[in-house]
Nucleic acid binder design. Structure first.
Lengths: 244, 244
DNA sequence: CGAGGGGTTGATCTCCTTCAACGGAGGTGG
DNA sequence: CCACCTCCGTTGAAGGAGATCAACCCCTCG
């Protein structure tokens, strides 16, 4: 109960407060949530699709993906989650998730009982609103992905995701918007963007050859961020990371 | 205030209650929400992207689409909304929407002030939870779309959407899961599915020639629903329309 | 009756997939 | 400590699903 990974709750609170104002009392309630920490190896599933859960997962460290799965077992990544992200806040109100979550790298995750989340949401309407708001932002990001995957050619899709991740990394101080660690394989990146790993590789090469960015050994280094953002038509407002 | 389109609130309440249990008192609170009804012609925008709104939109009649828009003006449909759908419940907690909404056919929409929605959500935690849950289901549907658009070839994407709309139409008694009115042009359907209208046309033809379904003059008639659902890998649970 | 939007079909082109091979880095066991 | 193994990245060649371009049709509405 509130063992290691103790940095995650403050991080989560900070993210909540980027989007919602909370009183000191409400902040304390969030910080005193009980939790237990779980360490996951690469490729370990955290939640399998259709499973009933009674806790939500807060990433303390590492990289976790949310995915859809068909009856045949094929998976499609629909979201990447980094430290400070509550992956499945949704499950508080939808305990039988339609999606699954899996660790892309060795990760530490805090499991927080639904009962506790529900309790503080009921006690503090502002917290309920903050949770609801975070779920709404999540939907907005997914809507952007639908548009992104459906609308543009491979290079621009890759560009868009790398812009998005940069902003999110920066918001939790895991790097800057143009330099950060992103431990996905080209295969996984392609899976999320509806591309084959072969084509992801070729497009990364073309971006590299044009001096726009490099992506080697999990390190993203965007050399020409304004160009990348403009070609991807990237507009960060949908992330709701610096508004109030 | 609560003029015509008066059937919409009961429809909305029924949909909420498919997913959440509410006491009589809570039900009354939902039904007595104030609203004013707006009639929209085809291709009229209801909310433009980036606009600040102080009301949410409940579809009473017609077909409304939610879309993403780039700086250049190109649009991508990310959701279809039918009677009983609260299109942008999200905007209660995110008043500056990142998306827009537009009428695909002549439609009637009830605008419900955020202040009122917020008020009943604060007064009744169960209603707050029901709203939050609906937002979570919306995210789940979007996640399915990400996977659907990214994963399968054109025929199967079309099949999947037609299965989805059938279930939703049936849930609000606008038809059956295999026969319903869906007033989108092939252009709009393609826009939502990342396909050109030309290719949508060809795929609909191939589905028709194989006796699986017809889609003429806005009327969807699925002749072989089991086959369609299985080829699209359609699993209706993500819609949360018959669970509790 | 004319105009315009949407549906239908054909021909060509292209972006991306598929298949296949090889290389490099890290990890493991002898 | 080195050999082996496996996963991932890299590159080439060929094939295909869907886009693009361009007609023509039908229906509706003014």
């Amino acid at each position: 109960v509130n063992q290691s990974g103790g940095h995650a709750l403050p991080l989560f609170l900070r993210r909540l407060m980027l989007r919602s104002a909370l009183t000191q009392q409400e902040q304390d309630a969030v910080l005193s949530l009980s939790s237990y920490s779980v360490k996951l190896m690469t490729r370990r599933d955290l939640v399998t699709p259709g499973e009933r859960v009674d806790y939500s997962c807060l990433v303390a460290d590492g990289l976790v993906a949310r995915f859809e799965q068909t009856a045949l077992g094929s998976r499609r990544i629909t979201a990447f989650h980094i430290a400070g992200d509550m992956i499945d806040l949704h499950s508080v109100v939808l305990p039988v998730a339609s999606w699954g979550t899996t660790a892309l790298t060795t990760s530490t995750v805090l499991k927080i009982p639904h009962a506790d989340l529900q309790e503080i949401a009921t006690r503090f309407p502002a917290i309920a609103r903050a949770f609801w708001r975070d779920t709404a932002v999540d939907a907005a990001v997914l809507a952007k992905w639908v548009a992104n995957v459906g609308q543009w050619e491979a290079r621009l899709r890759i560009a868009h995701v790398l812009c998005e991740m940069g902003r999110r990394m920066e918001a939790v101080r895991l790097g800057t918007r143009s330099q950060y660690r992103f431990s996905v394989t080209q295969e996984q990146l392609g899976n999320a963007l509806a591309l084959t790993s072969v084509h992801v590789n070729r497009m990364l090469r073309s971006l590299r050859e044009e001096g726009i960015l490099t992506f080697r050994r999990s390190e993203v280094d965007i050399r020409n961020l304004p160009l990348l953002e403009s070609m991807a038509n990237f507009d960060p407002t949908f992330l709701m990371l610096d508004t109030r």
